[in-house]
């Protein structure tokens, strides 16, 4: 038995989907007075629990809208769960929507510092790793250009390079093995594999079952926010294949 690195306990996540978005004071006041402030409650996750030990690699399967990304964001700390708790231990590298957190006015170099700070790196660490990040992303010529002039592939490359420069204990992957051109994809996969060999704990969302089979040892299936299957990867993937036939 390894030590638990992530413990997700009875996590539920509720969203209020108001049919019309009330975001003006006047509307709010009118609706409040007329008592029309009703929301459609929507539970994106319901009572989700699991524990991962060091080195576990969990594949999260499910159709669109099953709650996979919500689950990752709850674990990453972006969403606070409506109920339940998440405990995690160690450095977490979220590879979610690569490059989406960058500031478009800011240059590549400036974004490395800003984004690195947000991910929890110290200034010294970034100073030391700056060149390595730039080299890995292959953006030497463009590093002092504002990010708004980058292509989406370039942005994703920079995001990947920054997030994987640490040796994280927990890696969150949301469909990201498909970023960049073929060459960079190979490179990023190799990088991920080297992280995996070091015993990093992985949460992996993908629709590519082959990839899940290759990377993961555990898997779970989400359906409308519930865990319907959880166990060894091989078995769960087989069940999922039957479900989606």
């Amino acid at each position: 038995m390894g030590e638990p690195v992530i413990e997700v306990q009875n996590v539920s996540m509720k969203f209020n989907l108001s049919k019309e978005k009330v975001d003006s004071l006047k509307e709010y006041a009118i609706k409040f007075l007329k008592r029309e402030l009703k929301y459609n409650e929507f539970w994106a996750l319901q009572d989700v629990s699991f524990t991962l030990e060091k080195g576990d690699r969990l594949g999260i399967l499910g159709l669109n809208g099953a709650g996979k990304s919500t689950l990752l964001k709850v674990i990453a700390g972006v969403f606070k769960p409506s109920a339940g708790s998440v405990m995690k231990k160690g450095v977490l590298a979220p590879l979610i929507e690569l490059g989406a957190g960058f500031d478009p006015q800011y240059t590549g170099r400036e974004n490395i510092y800003l984004y690195g700070a947000v991910l929890g790196y110290s200034r010294k660490f970034i100073d030391a790793k700056l060149q390595e990040i730039i080299d890995f992303s292959e953006l030497e010529e463009f590093i002092d250009v504002p990010l708004k002039n980058y292509s989406s592939g370039m942005r994703a490359r920079l995001g990947f390079a920054i997030a994987t420069i640490v040796e994280p204990d927990i890696l969150i992957l949301d469909e990201i093995l498909s970023v960049g051109d073929a060459k960079f994809r190979k490179k990023s996969e190799a990088k991920l594999m080297s992280l995996l060999e070091r015993g990093v704990t992985v949460l992996f969302v993908s629709h590519n079952l082959e990839q899940v089979r290759r990377i993961c040892n555990k898997a779970l299936i989400l359906e409308k926010g519930h865990i319907v299957q959880y166990g060894e990867a091989e078995e769960v993937i087989r069940i999922y294949e039957d479900m989606t036939k």
């Binding site: 990453a76 700390g77 972006v78 979220p94 979610i96 929507e97 989406a100 957190g101 500031d103 947000v118």
Partner: peptide, 9 residues
């Protein structure tokens, strides 16, 4: 918002 939606700060 772009940053808030992605990482916890």
């Amino acid at each position: 918002s772009a940053m808030i939606k992605k990482v916890y700060v």
